[in-house]
Design a protein around this nucleic acid. Structure first.
Length: 196
DNA sequence: GCCAGGATCGTCT
DNA sequence: GACGATCCTGGCG
């Protein structure tokens, strides 16, 4: 990603990550679903203030914020906005593109559409664990590449976020319209823009 | 196909 | 001691 990409409003970053490729050690996919979380947002881990757990959110942008959900699943976020401003983009789904066999093994042989269609699934498929919390997204094992020209013009829709109880009504989920690889079909929401 | 329930553990009250 | 930014399984139709 170009310098400064993450150093903007978390909503812009969440929107523009759609269509970009996320790779971890040879396994990769195109990001088709994201959600934005900002400090003033009750659903954001940083809402309660700075703690040892959410410290990475307050640090420099462009790093990974990884945490454990329900004691089982790792969640991968991209830290956004300037240092001191706590915000992040949750990566919720990928369209698999490379290392598909490896990902399938890690995921127990499920079908292509189930490989990365959820935040817990994609971290399992990519081999992302808590040890990568705080790691820069532009250094190994991570690689984050700008959207392919083929994705230009792709329709992106917004809708309410998924799986949360606080501030659940905010329309801060972004996903590719019509994609078979999102965590859920786009039940609500409306077309907002096209990939740049 | 849909829904209810369980797994599992770090973090905060 | 309660609660998740989740996923999978099993029961039922």
């Amino acid at each position: 990603m170009r310098p400064g990409f993450y150093e903007r409003s978390v909503h812009e970053v969440a929107r523009e990550l759609i269509g970009c490729t996320l790779a971890v050690d040879g396994a990769a996919g195109v990001i088709v679903e994201t959600e934005a979380y900002e400090a003033a947002d009750p659903a954001c881990h940083a809402y309660v203030g700075r703690t040892p757990r959410n410290e990475v959110l307050f640090g420099p942008p462009g790093r990974a914020y990884v945490y454990l959900s329900y004691g089982i699943h790792s969640m991968l976020n991209a830290v956004a906005e300037p240092e001191g401003s706590a915000a992040a983009v949750l990566i919720r789904a990928l369209e698999p593109s490379e290392g598909i066999e490896l990902m399938r093994e890690r995921r127990g042989g499920v079908g292509l559409e189930q490989l990365c269609s959820g935040p817990g699934k994609l971290t399992q498929a990519l081999g992302v664990g808590l040890e990568l919390n705080g790691a820069p997204l532009d250094e190994p094992p991570f690689e984050l590449l700008p959207s392919d020209p083929a994705w230009r013009g792709t329709e992106v829709i917004t809708s309410t976020r998924i799986g949360i109880t606080k501030a659940a009504e905010l329309p801060w989920r972004y996903c590719v319209a019509g994609s078979r690889f999102v965590s859920r079909p786009w039940p609500w929401g409306q077309a907002v823009s096209r990939a740049a």
